[in-house]
Simulated scan of single mutants.
Amino acid sequence: MKISKETAEHYVWGTSCDGWHLLKEESLSIIHERMPPWTEETRHYHNRSRQFFFVLLGTVTIEMNGKFYEVNQQEGLEVPPTTPHQVYNNTDSAIEFLVISQPTTKGDRISV
């Protein structure tokens, strides 16, 4: 079945960030996310889930184990299971990226 941001299940996270479930399966999750300028998520890790962040628009800053990575448009970064991480938008423009998780992160998020 064909899917897009316009037809996907939408949700709001944090205070003003958006997510669209492009694929929502137990074994694999693909989410298109949008973060407004100067927003961040809560630092956390996953026991089981391996994640890959792929930037569609802008520059995403990802902190992983105390090291900061600037991930530009058309670049990606893998976050292995049990790795504390946090995503930031430290820019004046909205950013958009894909979060691919295997397996899904549902019930597998531990805040630190």
Rank of each mutant, 00 (worst) to 15 (best):
R34K: 15
I100N: 03
N72R: 15
S101V: 00
V12W: 10
I95W: 03
G14D: 08
T91R: 10
P80S: 08
P103L: 07
T61I: 07
D92W: 01
H46W: 02
V87F: 01
V55G: 07
E40W: 02
I100P: 02
E63W: 03
H32D: 06
W38A: 10
G58S: 09
K106W: 06
H21R: 10
H85Q: 12
T59M: 07
M1R: 13
K106A: 14
K2R: 14
T59G: 01
L28T: 14
F97N: 01
N65R: 11
S27G: 10
Y88F: 15
N89V: 11
D18I: 04
L57S: 13
Q51V: 03
F97Q: 01
T104Y: 01
E26P: 10
S93W: 03
F53L: 14
D92L: 11
D18R: 07
E41C: 13
K24H: 12
V12H: 12
L77Q: 06
H46I: 07
T83E: 13
I110G: 00
H46D: 05
S29N: 05
E70T: 09
A8M: 09
Y45V: 00
D18C: 08
I3C: 05
E6W: 08
R109C: 08
I30M: 14
N65A: 11
I31R: 03
L23I: 15
T83K: 02
E41Y: 05
E75A: 13
S4A: 15
K106M: 09
E75Y: 11
F52M: 11
T105E: 06
Y88G: 06
T105L: 05
I3W: 00
E9S: 13
N89R: 09
I62E: 01
E26H: 12
E41K: 07
V99P: 02
K24P: 02
P84F: 12
T61G: 04
H32G: 01
Q86P: 00
K24A: 09
R43N: 05
H44M: 13
F52E: 07
L23D: 04
P80V: 07
Y69G: 03
G66D: 06
Q73K: 15
S93T: 13
L56M: 15
K24S: 12
E9I: 12
V99L: 06
E78P: 00
G14C: 10
G58L: 09
Y11T: 11
D108H: 04
S49V: 04
H85C: 05
L28R: 13
